[in-house]
């Protein structure tokens, strides 16, 4: 289902808004939204909550992290750094919850 939705977004963005639109929309989903969706996937909440919470948390927290990192790193590097940090956090949570379940 996720692939279908992503496909619909990709086709729409390319047709309506061209290459820049495709890059902006798909890039936003991958770089900003996906890490937060993976993070929220570790918690016992419904699929709808995971999706909506991750969208709205991402647009507030991701720029916060990038902005403050942008004082010590070049802004573009801070963007990649924030992406990596959230991804790492989501995997760390995954491992933590898996371990606590097996114990």
């Amino acid at each position: 289902m996720g692939a279908i939705v992503l496909g619909m977004l990709a086709v729409f963005s390319a047709l309506a808004l061209g290459y820049a639109g495709f890059r902006t929309i798909i890039g936003t989903i991958i770089i900003i939204l996906l890490p937060f969706y993976l993070l929220f996937s570790n918690f016992n909440i419904s699929k709808g909550e995971k999706l909506i919470f991750s969208i709205f948390a991402a647009i507030a927290i991701f720029p916060s992290l990038v902005y403050w990192a942008g004082f010590i790193l070049p802004f573009r590097a801070a963007l990649l750094g924030a992406f990596a940090a959230i991804l790492l956090a989501s995997f760390a949570f995954k491992i933590y919850f898996r371990k606590s379940q097996s114990v």
Binding site: G21, T24, I32, P63, L79
Partner: peptide
């Protein structure tokens, strides 16, 4: 700064100064 930072991120991710921002 968060709203504005989202705009900056869009410009970098989308590669366009104005179109990506307005999307």
């Amino acid at each position: 700064p968060q709203y504005w930072t989202n705009g900056a991120i869009a410009q970098i991710v989308g590669g366009e100064r104005t179109l990506s921002f307005f999307i």
